[in-house]
Amino acid sequence: MLAQVTHILGLTSIRRVRTLPVSGRVLVASRQKVNASDVIAEAQIPAQHVLVDVRRALRLGSVEQAQRVIVRNEGERIFAGDVIAETGGLFPRMVRAPADGQVVMIAGGRVIIEVQSQPIQIFAGVPGYVVEVIQERGAVIEGQGALIQGAWGNDRVAEGMMINLLNSPDEELTRQKMDVSLRGAVVVGGMCSDPEVLRMGEELPLRGLILSSMSASLVPVARSVSYPVMLTEGFGRIPMNEAAYTLISTNDKRDVALSTPFRPQAGERPELIIPLPAVGEPAADFAYFKPDQKVRILGAPYPSHVGVLVRLLPGLTTLPNGVRAQAAEVRLSKDTLVVVPLANLEVIQSV
């Protein structure tokens, strides 16, 4: 069975395909040098129309009643959350606009809103060169350097000097460590459970933040900040794996690129790239399971735990929940051997 591979490599060749979801304009040429934060393609998502049924939303008895409570006019600009219709009285009921746009029609107790077209920009994500242009869609970018792939990211891209605050893999990033000396840096900070740390990063501002793990409750804050945030391990209180910690420690104060998309279905993962002048070999995104591989468990009851695959179990194994699946024995520590379905494992490739 093939497994997804997480790369933690001191030197590799990195090739990424960056494309628009719709036809647009490509802004780069073949053999052009790019930075990770360069926009390589852009497009406009066509305007969409949203129908708001006021009569049904307010449970009114007739179209005429619905028409009377609509408080907007055709041609009017509105914003998400604006009141479209209101019943009035002591306990008024309201219908609000679902998105920014313009009212294009009011009829039959319904309001049609034209939602504004949205610009899309695709970033290179990798410092390197354009090796292929994909007409009206994007490009293929190739670069060289050290690579650490993460478990979660907030979909941002930035570059800057990496400053490592960790003296050990299990340290926590606290408010006391966030000072003005970190302004403009990509900071490596360990575990985090305080949302104010992320907000302070916005105020400094940071160029990026690499954490081993953070509380799941911090996701809305992490998504709201303008700088990229990457987790190397996942959610909870999980120390950084030794391979990533060592690679980061030996490259402290280097310029890096941090790209943090998180779209597993599309094969896009957050990545820390440390550009290097040497040429590395490309790394495969998938590998076959085999004994002695370092693996990470993706699901409960051992989420994000790293261990060593001891052996693949023959045939199908009956799991505690009654499901029969292909599985393997994984050693998490000297005294802990667990059985994990292969679907809940990924291989960690490190050099």
Rank of each mutant, 00 (worst) to 15 (best):
residue 112 I to S: 06
residue 218 L to S: 00
residue 240 M to A: 04
residue 35 N to V: 02
residue 8 I to G: 01
residue 22 V to G: 08
residue 350 S to C: 11
residue 38 D to N: 12
residue 156 R to G: 02
residue 3 A to R: 11
residue 151 A to Y: 01
residue 295 V to Y: 01
residue 222 A to Q: 03
residue 73 N to R: 14
residue 141 I to G: 02
residue 293 Q to F: 04
residue 340 V to Y: 04
residue 258 L to A: 08
residue 178 M to Q: 05
residue 305 H to L: 13
residue 11 L to R: 10
residue 45 I to E: 14
residue 184 G to S: 09
residue 343 A to W: 08
residue 298 L to K: 10
residue 179 D to V: 09
residue 34 V to A: 06
residue 34 V to P: 02
residue 4 Q to S: 12
residue 3 A to Y: 07
residue 130 V to M: 09
residue 79 F to C: 02
residue 150 G to L: 07
residue 10 G to V: 00
residue 156 R to K: 15
residue 296 R to I: 14
residue 230 M to V: 11
residue 306 V to K: 04
residue 245 Y to C: 04
residue 129 Y to G: 01
residue 243 A to C: 07
residue 87 T to A: 06
residue 188 V to P: 03
residue 148 I to Y: 03
residue 69 V to M: 05
residue 187 V to I: 12
residue 205 P to K: 01
residue 285 D to W: 08
residue 50 V to Y: 11
residue 165 L to N: 07
residue 324 R to Y: 00
residue 233 E to P: 01
residue 67 Q to I: 09
residue 41 A to Q: 02
residue 217 S to F: 07
residue 185 A to P: 00
residue 202 E to A: 14
residue 13 S to N: 13
residue 40 I to S: 04
residue 351 V to H: 14
residue 346 E to D: 14
residue 6 T to N: 08
residue 206 L to A: 05
residue 16 R to V: 12
residue 195 P to M: 02
residue 49 H to P: 00
residue 284 A to S: 13
residue 342 L to T: 12
residue 284 A to L: 13
residue 279 V to M: 09
residue 309 L to C: 08
residue 48 Q to E: 15
residue 25 R to T: 15
residue 71 V to F: 01
residue 314 P to W: 11
residue 52 V to M: 07
residue 128 G to C: 08
residue 183 R to D: 05
residue 176 Q to V: 12
residue 29 A to D: 14
residue 11 L to F: 03
residue 322 G to R: 13
residue 17 V to Y: 05
residue 237 R to Q: 14
residue 78 I to D: 02
residue 140 V to R: 07
residue 337 L to N: 12
residue 262 F to D: 14
residue 103 V to H: 03
residue 251 N to V: 09
residue 120 I to K: 03
residue 160 G to E: 06
residue 59 R to S: 14
residue 98 P to S: 10
residue 59 R to G: 06
residue 48 Q to Y: 00
residue 190 G to E: 01
residue 329 E to F: 03
residue 258 L to I: 11
residue 1 M to T: 13
residue 258 L to W: 05
residue 164 N to L: 11
residue 132 E to N: 15
residue 240 M to C: 07
residue 205 P to S: 12
residue 342 L to D: 06
residue 112 I to Y: 02
residue 325 A to M: 13
